[in-house]
Structure formats: structure tokens, C-alpha cells
Design a protein around this nucleic acid. Sequence first.
DNA 1: CTGAAAGCGCTTACAG
DNA 2: CTGAAAGCGCTTACAG
Lengths: 350, 350
Amino acid sequence: MAIPRSGPNMSAIAAALGVSAATVSNALSGKGRVSPELIERIRAKAAELGYVPSLTARALRTGRTGVLGMVLPDIANPLFPQIAQAIENAAANAGYGVLIADSRGDIATQTEAINRLLERGIDGMVIVPRRGTRIADVGCPVAVIDTPSTPGNTVAADHWDGGSQMGRHLASLGHRKVLLVGGNPNSNVQNDRIGGLKAGLGNEAECEVLWIEKVEAVSGAGCPLGLSAKAAEGFTAFAALSDLSALRALTELQRGGISVPEMVSVTGFDDLIWSSVVTPALTTVRMDMGTIADLAIAALIRVIEPDGEAEPEAAGHVVSETDRVPMQLIVRQSTGAPLKSHAQNKTTDQ
Amino acid sequence: MAIPRSGPNMSAIAAALGVSAATVSNALSGKGRVSPELIERIRAKAAELGYVPSLTARALRTGRTGVLGMVLPDIANPLFPQIAQAIENAAANAGYGVLIADSRGDIATQTEAINRLLERGIDGMVIVPRRGTRIADVGCPVAVIDTPSTPGNTVAADHWDGGSQMGRHLASLGHRKVLLVGGNPNSNVQNDRIGGLKAGLGNEAECEVLWIEKVEAVSGAGCPLGLSAKAAEGFTAFAALSDLSALRALTELQRGGISVPEMVSVTGFDDLIWSSVVTPALTTVRMDMGTIADLAIAALIRVIEPDGEAEPEAAGHVVSETDRVPMQLIVRQSTGAPLKSHAQNKTTDQ
DNA sequence: CTGAAAGCGCTTACAG
DNA sequence: CTGAAAGCGCTTACAG
């Protein structure tokens, strides 16, 4: 004996009205096979009875659950709230639910998490892959959110373009000696940003990349990055490749008695929640997660829902060519023109 | 005609082995009604065929979906990653999936989001309510994560205790004039922390509360909080009621040329990702989200799964009395003893 | 120990 | 325009 549902089902509505369940179904789904008056009566009765359709039964019948999976390499990543909110919102607007899966940085866990989602019968999934991971076909439509440089079809913010905007901003302020502060050298996203930054800064600018992970491998996690010394060497701008790194740079510099933006400028990427909260507020680059999520969800739905002339091949990556979403430079108080003396230092240094 | 599943079903296994689907079901569910050899053959055939059970069909049959909802007031809240990861992990360990729902700060959206989850047939939900919101019974088991002070049964970190630990820490360092920096005066969580802080600091300490929201109502969002002036008044410690506020305080003080921890101490709450990244690293209090999530999920499952002598009443709040989870003080570099001169100032000031 | 049967709530050809 | 019937894949009394 199955556990009964709490509320009424279609049969209850049908019985109350002396019609068939098929008619109730047709009326409620609005496929138009039912006379207008009957539709109205059925609607009214459904509302009166507090009818809630069983999406489970519909799923079993139609083969589609109306649920998407969101697979993340690590929920603890501070970008997660932005991504999750945008995906949830886009999915909800399209009538889909979102099941989350976290691989906690582990590749085996990722496979497991994906399998659990598959068992649950999801109609498609959005994957934010681990650094350098290539997502194999998993047996359901997949949209990958990554960088345009990642091999494979993805929807992505144009990180290179964002870097280039930031580079031009710093160059226009007069910065000619810039330290790029990154976390992990294997990140495609960060490397794209570096490429853009260098291009935006132009040939006259001197650039150096400092990878936090490499420094920490030598000096331990949380160690100072030696940024004050870099400032003394004549670096007038510290362009971090993420807001988290920018925050680290900003506080280390301030702690070292170097005032931002008067003595040096600091910039980040991502426009995380705290970027506008710190003093001075962080100049950064925002990726339009709303648009990215919309594109990813739209691409999935195009494959999932059999609207007219959909592709016959319903499994596999769904973005036919990489969608690049532009990024937006947000100038706040953490950037300014370099000190005269520094600028002079710099020309002498060369 | 229903869309066929991609893989084999129980009937396929049954047919391949010349047994009944019922036997396959019994064998695979391990209820022990089948002979060991047959179980083995069925298992082997299932593996060979790559059988994946349809949780949708099981859900329709049993009335339980194996999915829980996670309702949040605002995914953008920086605590979200901690909560989401802990809940997802606890739920996954118990064999449940997690559907997310975001109310984006809006009360109507929250109701809508909850209804969408209900339609999806979730077995229970974890709710992190909006400030001051009371969760009405929604027709499925609910576990609320909030503070022990909130009326209604909840599982919660003991914020008062956390505040008290922090207060004792600051008192033991010698701080006698402490500014508490909060965001919103209506937050039960923050008020609990204030109560604990005051108790921990003791009667000899002078306390004042600065609400960021009130300052901003006058001077605009993102305005300076005037903390340097407070330091000049003799405040030697700035105890923020969240890490976000602590970050704001820390950077504003540093920017004002006040060095932390030498001149003043700064503390936070929550141990968010950046707490250990800033310089100086933030002394804070961590809530054990893993334990909180485990308690919440365990309470839900106790009601959902009919193990032996469960309560007959399966809907409504599931935590019979508030579970208080202790908090853990994490001392990092942002706290130290107050400057002698300040301490003297203070006694003179009084 | 094993199987035939019913049914969870819905949707979809098909027939009328 | 409306209804009878089948079936999505599973589980669970029940009978043997």
C-alpha cells in the first residue's frame, strides 16, 4: 500500500465534476482540447479543493522531472553565491528546480555527485568544472560555465576582455609597473585575465606575476606576500586576479603602512560582496552572472524541451559555440594615479 | 506514449533472468526475501546491464522523493556557502538530494519558493528564516536554523555563548572600552551575540553599540563609520557582530592609519573564508555548521522515515526542543593587549 | 523463497 | 469536445 498524498489528485477533481481524469488533465494543461466552460469549472474546482499537481507522477509519465543539477567544484568558493543565485533564478523562471551537488574539490566525489544527480532523473545539468577538468559526456544535456579558453563548448564570461578593460584603466591612470597577483597558475580563468591585463596595459608597462600558491608553498599558508617590498621596488599598482587575492593584497599593504590608493592602487576581479564594503572600496570587474546563467539555462532547455525542430541528439554539451559574456569594469576608490615620485622612480628604474 | 528511459529497468533484468520484477525489487532492496544465490545473480545482471533505479518511480510508489528543500532568505548572504555545503553534505550522507530555493529577501517570494518546493514533493525542508520571520507550518516536516532566542523550535549555534567567549577573550587581554559594531538592530542573532559579549566583558568594561545600518541611513551606504574618532575616544577594541562588519572596521581603521592589533583590536563572527586571508588575520568565532546541519537533517529524517515508533504527527517543526550547538573561538592576529597609553587614557577618560 | 496483481498520479494516443 | 485505456517503473501486501 502506497502512502497516500496529502491533497486531492486529478481523479478527485474528475469525480467531483463527473468528468474523466483525462479531461481534467487536458483542461489544466491548457492544451485546448476542452470547452472553455468546462475548463473554467475544472479550474475552479481544482482551486476549491486545493489541488497541487504531482510533479513526481508527471515526471514518471513524461520522462522529464523538471529538475536541473548544479555541479560545483567547491561550494566554499566565494563565487558560489553569485552563481547559485543566478542559476536558481534563471531555472525558476523557466519552471525548473535546482538540485545542488558539491564535489568538495575531489575528482572522485565529482563523479559520484554527478551520478547521484543522474539517478534522480535530472533533465540536464550546469557544471562549473574544477580547474583544468574536462567534462566528459555524462548521459544528459550539460552546460559548462568556464572560460572561453577552455577546450569544449561553454558559456563564459569573457575574462580576457575583463582583464583588458582593467589593464586599460590602470594604464590610463599612468601605471607603468604593475604586479599581477594570482592564486593558482593552472587556472584558465586567471590566465585569461592575465592575458587581457597585459594587452590592456600595453607594451610600455612592466608586468610581473606573483602566484600566491607558489609563495605559500615556500613560506607556508597565510604568509606575507612581500608586497611592501614590491611597492618599494616601484610597483605602483597591484592587480589581483580575484577579489579574494585583492583583499589579501589590500590589507597587507595597509598593514605595511602603504596607503591605498594614494601610494599604490589595488584592483580585483568578480565584484564579490565585500568589494564594496572595504575601505577603500575595491575597483574590480563584474561578470554578469545573470546573463551567463540565462544563456546556460536557455541552452539546456533548447535541448530538453521538444519544441518543434530540436536537435535529435539530446545528450552531451549543449552550447554549440562558446558564448562570451562581456564583463563590466567597476571603478571604486582603490585605484588612482600613481604618486609623482613613484612614477619618476619608475622611469629612472628602467 | 511516454518517452523511454535511457537505460534498462527492473523488468529488463527480470526478463533476462526469467524471474519476476517483484523478485528483482526484493533482491535489490535487500529486504531479504530472496535466496542468496538469486540475489547474487540479480545483482550481477543489474551491474552488467548498467541498471540505474528510477527514483522517480520509487517516489511515486512510496510517496517519498528522497529530496529535501533548502530555503534561504538570500543566497547572496556570505554565510550561504558554509550552510549550503554543510546541508548538502549531511543530506547526501543520509541519501537525500537538496533542492535550493531563494527568497531574495522578499517575503512573498519566500512563500512562492516554499510552494514550488512542496509541488516537487520534497520530504522535508531546512529553512534559514529572514530576520524576525516566524515560519508557519507548511505541510511538511521543517527544521529551522536560527538562534536559540527565536521563538519556535530550531537548531542553532549558541550565539550568546559565542559572544561570551569573545567577550572574555577581549577582557582577558585587558580591554575595558569596547565598541560593538553591528549591521542590523533587528537581527536576533546579532542581539544574542551582543548579550554574550557584554556578559563576557564583565561589568568593568564600557560598551557601546554602533549599528551600521543606522549610520548609513544618515550618511549613505558605504559611508565611513567614524571608527578612527572612536579610537581617539579611547576605544581599544572593535568587536564586530559579523566578519563582514569586522572587515569593514579593519580596513577603515587601517586606512585611517590605526594599526591592528597594536593600537586597537578587531574581532568578527562566523569565520568566513576571508577571515584568515586578511592581514592581520581576524580573530573570530566559528559556528560548527557541520554539526548544525547534521542535527537538522537527523531531526528531519527521524520524522520522515518510518523507523519503528516515530511520531504519528509527520508535519510541522521537527526539533522538539532547541538544539544549541557550541561555538568555537578562533584567536588570530587581529587581537592583542591594548596599548598602555590607551588603557591610561581610558581610566583618565572616565 | 518466489510470483501475479494492484496501484502511486499523471499524460497521451486513440476512438467516439 | 470528451472518455476509456494503457503505461511510465517501481513497491508492497498477498497468495502460493
